[in-house]
Design a protein around this nucleic acid. Sequence first.
DNA 1: AGCCGGATCCGCT
DNA 2: GCGGATCCGGCTT
Length: 204
Amino acid sequence: MLHGRGVAVRLTEVEAYLGERDPGSHAFRGRTRRNAVMFGPPGRLYVYFTYGMHVCANVVCSPEGEATAVLLRAGEVVAGHELARRRRTTSRSDADLARGPARLCVALGIRLDDDGADLGIAGEPGPSGEPGPSGAGAPGDRLRLEPGEPVAPARIRQGPRTGVSGEGGSAAYPWRFWIEGQPSVSPYRAHTPRRRPAAVRRPS
DNA sequence: AGCCGGATCCGCT
DNA sequence: GCGGATCCGGCTT
């Protein structure tokens, strides 16, 4: 369960990225400004910008110095539907509100400047961030990750990661996990290389 | 200084 | 099912 910003989501699909040895990981070529949070302490949000218009979020899972993270690919909105619908105006159904990593971020109001945010999962009270007078669930309350209802092991499925090019997208890295039969799980798509537009000669 | 491709989404066919 | 949108990070020159 990911709470905050007035919406709560039950995670239904994730992908694991296992540090610098993983060819599909942003950390594969070492630490950079963008992926620096991955190398930091666990329980923080790693948020990145992609395709010129989308943001996606990961939870850092490894001790400081390593760079393992879990990409939040999809979830089921379980509270704050109205607010989530307002943020996701193009969504045609509630199952689509957080179906896909960029959609999930929009539904939860996660932005690029949430990169590095402490999710408060280490049992620590968190950075002086009490729910506040507005109360939990109010817009602006801080993001936090909490255990949800246990999922029956028989319902958990595992397969290749979506949208990852090259070696990292192969069946050798079956580190996508999802809940069987959950409508919010995003459809699997193998990576399709983008053909870039032919160069246009512009008159001067 | 430039280029290339990307852990995607949406609308149209 | 397919292509366009749209721009930044990271690597090459």
